[in-house]
Design a protein around this nucleic acid. Structure first.
Lengths: 332, 332
DNA sequence: TTGAAAGCGCTACCAG
DNA sequence: CTGGTAGCGCTTTCAA
């Protein structure tokens, strides 16, 4: 099924069919309806590949994330998709599992697809990327990683500020032995977060001591990290987690040991994913506006595509401390 | 950047470049390496659209799901993707939010993309589909919905058997007032599940009474459904949830009211998502083998594409009762 | 073992 | 307002 068959049936040229389907150029309304009828009768679906090839432009945005399993990324995807649809775009997503090799593959695939724009929301990085990305001049939106440049917009979160808030809050509650649970500590954005934590607790040194644990991102990892901490003899009264997803795992480990949250150990997360309201106890966390991320990403990409001046922009989002039931005064 | 430039640089024809890139036909090894060098030097990425257009076949599988937010669907996606990659395919996903209109749009998009195969893992349906799907003859894999036909493979889960297991188990524990929490009761697959529940509890009537509540799929919905049930005066001692995701929400509501699980109310889920091990208390549930679903789907689609005989197949998966901490003997 | 050239299905430009 | 047609970048015969 192709334009030609539709054209034949509607007794017009393929050019006219194209005009009707794309709403461009003048078409007599009687002709238009004849074409439209042929289209429905034939159940014709334009071939997207032929379309992008001929038109030279794609209506698809790419999105690469580190871990779709983490609801944080899924939320961003959903808002990106909603915003994209509003503008007549589609979005395809790729997952890297925090592996640089996979990142490179995913980005190459996106380039092979000639996406109209590419949102890269990952923690890992690879030297090959900067080069390859700038080589093809597709609009790029980087979240949390990499320096802003000509063809690139950046969205960042003031993570340091958030961690600081959390730690200060815990200090106020009387906590003096505070732990940090994180993942992939060697990756840029994550190490920045750990440093922010260290810097903050060190402001209270030597009154406050700390210890951190690193594991894989996820429920399992959060649990194992908490396990390590609880076995270490450090005896933390509070655990600050790099994200809610890991915090949920930590919560589980703590309760499994018969410890109470927050009476024995306080826990904080980061992101404010939906699940954090539904855990038991509900999680104190720092809210990140995922909707803003998705919205800004799409807007930057679409603007960048049309040569707009939105590229090169850098936006920083602030976090907000959400106090729930997983934190409380330190035990006597 | 296109084949021609690569060809020029390697001093060969575009045909030869194509042969090298696709590993087809004979190419002298010296020529091959010359081409390969040109490719890397130029950072050439073949245009996927031109490729599928010229080749007439796509290496992309489509997947349409009702609710990516529910980890069940995400798990299927991940295994499909892994299996697809093994076979040199990609997969693109679309989300319907249980809306028939969105389903139709998504499927049209997939057809426009000329996917090599389409896995439809949704609960909603639309009369237009059967027609449109068979019109284009793309291999289709249907999960849980629709009748098997020529070009269609089906995967089903013995949901009824699972619900029966759960109810019997609860009966054994002494429960006599059992509730059912579900979503989208009007949609085929969901109503089947509710009927299975009713049928099973009715076997114990009048000794056992029941009441069900319907809400949206998700944490929020599970919570509201539980709220409704708990306010209804029915005073259930056990709540059977149509999936783990909703069960998590129900759990939250129950505990928020100061009721204990399982001492005051027992709860069961369905799916055995990772989260069900991490809730508090951990969730008794029925395991569905998502890996099998993803694997079977990809295999059926790829076989169907090459005209294999795998289409028309119907596979039914059994569930397995996983007993954890959210169920216990009824209170005295 | 290689090259020339004919499409794949569509859009966009140029005439009319 | 409409039709003819030249590509878009690639694969795939067919000859050489």
């Amino acid at each position: 099924m192709n334009v030609e068959e539709v054209a034949k049936r509607a007794k017009v040229s393929t050019a006219t069919v194209s005009r009707v389907l794309n709403n461009v150029g003048p078409v007599k309304s009687s002709t238009r309806s004849r074409v439209l009828r042929a289209v429905t009768e034939l159940k014709y679906q334009p071939n997207i590949h032929a379309r992008t090839l001929a038109g030279g432009k794609s209506r698809t945005l790419g999105m690469v994330v580190s871990n779709l399993e983490n609801p944080f990324f899924l939320d961003v995807f959903r808002t990106m998709e909603a915003e994209a649809h509003k503008n007549g775009y589609e979005v395809v997503v790729a997952n890297t599992d925090y592996q640089a090799e996979q990142l490179v593959k995913s980005i190459r695939l996106m380039i092979a697809r000639r996406v109209a724009g590419l949102a890269i929301i990952v923690s890992e990085t690879d030297p090959r990327l900067t080069e390859e990305l700038s080589h093809n001049n597709v609009p790029v939106m980087l979240y949390d990683v990499g320096a802003p440049s000509e063809k690139t917009s950046n969205i960042r979160v003031n993570y340091g500020g958030g961690v600081e808030n959390a730690v200060e809050y815990l200090y106020t509650l009387g906590h003096r032995r505070i732990s940090f649970v994180s993942h992939h500590a060697t990756l840029g954005p994550l190490s920045v977060r750990e440093q922010a934590f260290r810097k903050t607790v060190n402001q209270y040194a030597p009154e406050v001591s700390w210890r951190s644990a690193v594991n894989i991102d996820g429920l399992e990892g959060g649990r194992m990290a908490a396990c390590e901490l609880l076995n270490s003899g450090f005896d933390p009264t509070a655990i600050v987690c790099v994200n809610d997803f890991m915090a949920l795992g930590a919560l589980r480990e703590i309760r499994e040991r018969g410890l109470r949250v927050p009476q024995d150990v306080s826990v904080t997360g980061f992101d404010n994913i939906k699940l954090s309201e539904f855990s038991f106890p509900s999680l104190t966390t720092l809210h990140i506006d995922r909707e803003a991320i998705g919205r800004l990403a799409v807007q930057a990409l679409i603007a960048g595509e049309s040569g707009g001046t939105n590229a090169g922009r850098e936006t920083t989002l602030e976090t907000e401390l959400i106090i729930r039931d997983s934190t409380g005064p330190v035990r006597a």
